[in-house]
């Protein structure tokens, strides 16, 4: 029988998946300034800068101005130790980050703070061309900035998970296996059959089936762990996943 939500929560807590997630560390720091909290927040920002950039672009700013504003926001966000403003009542990192950006983009904040960045602060590494490609290719002209932010957030999450998964396989010397099997991640047949892949990799078909099963298991663990990084409570992982499914499938 599949585990209930409570059992799932307990097992995840026991495995230590949740105890060390970034957003829970930030929230646990409360008003105190702690290096782990600062590092956790910086890690989150490094992962999820693209949704913010897309949001700023969708608000009507040009490429260079959006880049400048997003970078300025992160610099100020981290410099001000913004985690001291965060508490569990503020909800998930996704919504907290967007609300913080919206606040930043108000005229007062821009006027007061926009030019204060620089000087030993953390710079988010940019791949501006990729970000702008996303901006151009993903968004219907009429999509609201908030919707654009959430869509890119979901896609950034998946890209991060697949990136980590690929790195795990590379570390184990199995990059070729990952490349061959990744199309099977969501559970239906890929373009090539198990037999064809087995033949290409010099493995048996049974071994490929086992490898696909393990890949899916590992992917699922990585996905839930990554979502857990952005929520304040293990109970929220499934809710966050359902929310993002609705975003991506257009139900929201």
């Amino acid at each position: 029988m599949a585990p209930s939500g409570k059992e799932s929560e307990n097992s995840e807590t026991q495995r230590g998946v949740f105890a060390t997630t970034h957003w829970s560390v930030v929230l646990a720091a409360g008003d105190s300034v702690s290096p782990p909290a600062a590092e956790a927040l910086e890690n989150l920002c490094r992962t999820y800068w693209q949704p913010l950039y897309v949001y700023v672009r969708r608000r009507g700013y040009g490429l260079e101005e959006a880049q400048d504003l997003t970078q300025s926001f992160f610099a100020l966000f981290l410099q001000k130790k913004s985690f001291s403003l965060a508490n569990p009542a503020r909800g998930r990192f996704r919504t907290f980050l967007l609300k913080s950006l919206q606040h930043f983009l108000t005229d007062d904040w821009k006027r007061d703070h926009r030019l204060k960045r620089g000087g030993g602060q953390v710079e988010i590494p940019w791949d501006i061309h990729t970000a702008d490609d996303h901006y151009a290719s993903e968004l219907a002209e009429t999509m609201t900035p908030e919707r654009a932010y959430e869509e890119r957030w979901a896609m950034t999450l998946l890209e991060q998970v697949l990136c980590l998964l690929r790195a795990d396989y590379a570390k184990a010397g199995k990059t070729q296996l990952f490349e061959a099997l990744q199309d099977f991640l969501w559970g239906t047949d890929g373009p090539a059959s198990y037999a064809q892949i087995a033949d290409g990799l010099g493995m048996t078909e049974g071994a490929i089936r086992v490898a696909v099963h393990r890949l899916r298991e590992h992917y699922r663990e990585r996905l839930r762990a990554e979502v857990a990084h952005t929520v304040s409570n293990p109970n929220e992982v499934d809710d966050e996943l359902r929310y993002l499914i609705q975003v991506i499938s257009g139900a929201r």
Binding site: L158, L162, W186, I248, S249
Partner: peptide
């Protein structure tokens, strides 16, 4: 890879 299906794989 479909993003909706990928996210669904993570549900309990």
């Amino acid at each position: 890879l479909c993003p909706t299906c990928l996210l669904r794989e993570g549900l309990t």
